[in-house]
Every structure is written in C-alpha cells, then in structure tokens.
Amino acid sequence: MTVLAGVRKGARGVIWYLKGVLGEDAYEKYVAHHAACCETDAADFDGAQHPLMTAREFWRDQTDRQDQNPQGRCC
C-alpha cells in the first residue's frame, strides 16, 4: 500500500512537472493571481477592474498575446 502510494505520489509529481513545463498550469496561475490582486486591491496595475476570464477566453487571450509577441527558440 505504501509502495503504491509512493508510486502514485511520484506519478502525480511527474504530471505536475510536465504540465508546468508545457504551460498547462497557466490558467490556474491566472485565477490565483486574479484572486490575489484584483480582489484585495480591487484593481490591476492599470487601475481598472478586470472580470475573471473563463478558461476558454483565457486561452484565446494567451495565444493572441503569442501572436503579438512571439518568443524565440534556439537551435
């Protein structure tokens, strides 16, 4: 049982790492950031209120940003 639990914990760690490297956790990070900054300060950097984006809106916004600011990759 303990071995199984260890394997499960390890597998969860690998998935967490892979999601982090691939950027899948971006929406969770955004939600956490939104909750932290927009509810306590009632505004973001620009001073305006920003309603929380849905996951679908967030990912569209994310790829549109990539369009405007493409990131380099090396050889």
Binding site: L18, K19, L22, E24, Y27, A55, R56, F58, W59, R60
Partner: peptide
C-alpha cells in the same frame, strides 16, 4: 482549450 498535455 488548455489541455496541452493531453493533445501533446
């Protein structure tokens, strides 16, 4: 949207 690991 967002299921990056799955589609990878």
């Amino acid at each position: 949207p967002g299921k990056i690991t799955e589609i990878s």
